[in-house]
Design a protein around this nucleic acid. Sequence first.
RNA 1: GCGCCUGUAGCACAACGGCUAGUGCAUCGGCCUUCCAAGUCGAUGAUUACGGGUUCGAUUCCCGUCAGGCGCUCCA
Length: 500
Amino acid sequence: MAVSLDTIISLCKRRGFIFQSSEIYGGMAACYDYGPLGVELKRNVRDAWWRAMVQERGDIEGLECSILMHPDVWRASGHVENFTDPLVDCKSCRARFRADHVEGYEAVYTVTARTDGGATERFEVTLGPQIPTKVIRPGYRHNGAVLEEIAEIKFKGSPRTCPTCGNRELTEPRLFNLLFRTHVGPIEDAASTVFMRPETAQGMFVNFENVRGSMRRKLPFGIAQIGRSFRNEITTKAFVFRTLEFEQMEMEFFCKPGTDEEWYRHWVNERFNWYLRYGIRRENLRLRQHDADELAHYSRMCHDIEYNFPMGWGELEGVAHRGDYDLTAHMKQSGKNLKFFDEETKEAITPYVIEPAAGVDRTALTFMIDAYHEEEVRGEKRVVLRLHPAMAPLKVAVLPLLKKRGEIVEKCQALTAALKQRWRAVYDDTAAIGKLYRRQDEVGTPFCVTIDVESLDDGKATVRDRDTMEQDRIELGRIEDYLAERLVLNPPKVAEPALG
RNA sequence: GCGCCUGUAGCACAACGGCUAGUGCAUCGGCCUUCCAAGUCGAUGAUUACGGGUUCGAUUCCCGUCAGGCGCUCCA
């Protein structure tokens, strides 16, 4: 039986993985804090991703960009212009739907645009039932001026009948822009407005030339980044699954047109297998291809890697074919040349981009959920997180069987100190041995080492396995080697073809 | 954003409009025990989410806010 989200939320709070943000002030919606064990788990997720994407390969460089960037970055990317289709609400039946779904839809869009001279001008565009964001989209031009933002939308005429209840009480269409805005400098005027990045991807596009040049790269190569992004979501949901502030692991892989489809397949498979490699159960993963109408404005093709969450299938990671959309857009906006000159064919190429983009928070949550097990041991419930050792916040706990015997405690602390040089290790003597084991099980610690009275004579300790609860007597001097063999922090790659 | 439901100790829950808001687990300490949440004694911990109202009296009824869950809607 699948674990409920409530159970996970309770465990997360009780054992220091995840807390509600600003809890003593009543909480901050859709924001969460990671506690002592949560930060370890997150760090493990990032490390495993970085290892697979950067360290183990030779064709990807790392990068860390600032969160605040020049506002033109987001004009070029299309994020300022708008992010969603205009929506209307029915005041009568409370339904919400896309404006262009209203019978006889026609609306006047007030748009701001910038001329080549840098001046901003406003003008109006009237559109019928075609999807407005497919027409007024990044790069849209009017009398030589380039679209900056849709400032306002108003229905034209009066045919605004609700398709659900038939009443005529619809609100004006509203755009929901997902960009958080803030200001540079103490004065909040329009000129100082900057945006909190909604994705880390753009930082890699605008640094394409910097990375290529400084690292003397030729196509194909990739740029990888892990960092926080911010989206002012209309609806947030399901614990850390969708939050306003979240952490992304993204990689932009630049390749020659013509090789793009092969790379696309490569990355879909590679990323799907990454989850298997760290122990996510195959039956809880699936691949789903986006239909044409759900593709983002920049995307030609997209596969989601989905996980079977307690609340249903949800996206863990998207692998998108972004074509040359982004580099082209930045060339237009910045006036800089971002093409790659191919010495063989003597031609300038605008690379195609394949982008695997994953969420750190969702991935961490997934590891918790997938690892959660309840079982009965001697008539008592045992909760155990069967986390992959690479993901476990703590790798080993050292426990004295008798805390009253000074020699035992001493040996335990010496062993803990030695193990800490290599792994995240803890010492605990605040309960009876059975309880100490259960505590470690609940947070997924793979091994416990127990020193008892006999250890003082034979120099051996008991190593206990989290999953099987089996015990081995091991000489104290050999414990580090014993654990090193079993704490496989860099498991072998999996090669299951998920996509043809 | 809308609708429904919920909010009491770290967690899970109880308390008819009426006594000092209880119980289990957890946590901390003592005794005992010493390899799988044992026993026992004790302790800490709650302006009942926050703010207002009705009432002699509110955890309980009403309103607002905040937060969470579920369902719509939406989802680069």
